[in-house]
């Protein structure tokens, strides 16, 4: 089933799990998809629990009826079958708890990973825009310096020429310095990222040798 339908039959947990809502048309506001999914998950679990209980009770009723019908001297004793069903119930509960833990751990790990991914994208975007800014600034200053020399067709005095050359030299240095800053900023960022990765890897599997590259 791919879309919610109204039907005479009862809704099943499987249908709740498989339900897929159409996206709201552009410009219309919709609910937060994750919230809807999380809620559906809760409803599904609750439904499974209720159905489970119902099946248990139906069975209980059936067994009690049988016992009354064939009431003999040992009717009150616990039947081996009852004990087995109880054991199944206990094991099922334990499994459901384990499943819940696994699901929680996976969700937690997914959330952390998604957050880290967002963080990485932001850092990269920030670095890119800084890089652009720095380069633009250096470029603007350098062009300005060039314009200062080019349009003046009049012969320049020696003092003026020396002054301008000094300015060009200054700006060249300025641009070099900017580039160096930029480079070290980016390298620091990269080192940061690599440190994170190394420490995470170490925490995952202990320290190990570096990998050979595949050709």
């Amino acid at each position: 089933m791919t879309s919610p339908e109204i039907h005479a039959q009862r809704i099943t947990p499987a249908e709740l799990q498989a339900v897929n809502f159409q996206r709201a048309p552009l410009g219309r506001r919709g609910f937060d998809e994750d919230q809807v999914r999380a809620f559906l998950g809760q409803v599904e679990q609750e439904l499974v629990r209720v159905l489970n209980e119902k099946a248990d009770l139906e069975n209980e009723v059936g067994r009690l009826r049988e016992r009354i019908a064939g009431a003999g001297p040992d009717a009150a004793a616990i039947q081996p079958e009852d004990a087995h069903i109880q054991a199944v119930r206990i094991l099922s509960n334990a499994q459901q708890t384990a499943d819940q833990y696994v699901a929680d751990a996976q969700r937690y790990s997914r959330e952390i990973a998604e957050e880290a991914r967002r963080g990485r994208d932001e850092i990269l975007a920030d670095a890119r825009s800084r890089a652009t800014l720095v380069l633009e600034e250096a470029h603007r200053q350098a062009s300005y310096a060039a314009e200062q020399i080019a349009p003046s067709s009049e012969p320049m005095s020696g003092d003026e020429r020396r002054e301008l050359e000094r300015e060009i030299a200054y700006l060249r240095t300025f641009s070099d310095v900017y580039r160096t800053h930029l480079r070290s900023y980016l390298e620091a960022l990269l080192r940061n990222v690599e440190e994170w990765e190394t420490s995470e890897r170490e925490s995952l599997s202990g320290t190990r040798a570096a990998l050979p590259r595949m050709d």
Partner: peptide, 29 residues
């Protein structure tokens, strides 16, 4: 109609009768 409960019951019953089979499956089921 009982959905997940059916498979839950099935595996619990299977593992109670044959405990060594549990090891062939992952922790999360």
């Amino acid at each position: 109609q009982h959905g997940d409960a059916v498979a839950l019951f099935f595996y619990s019953d299977l593992f109670l009768r044959n405990p060594r089979l549990r090891d062939m499956f992952p922790v999360g089921m």
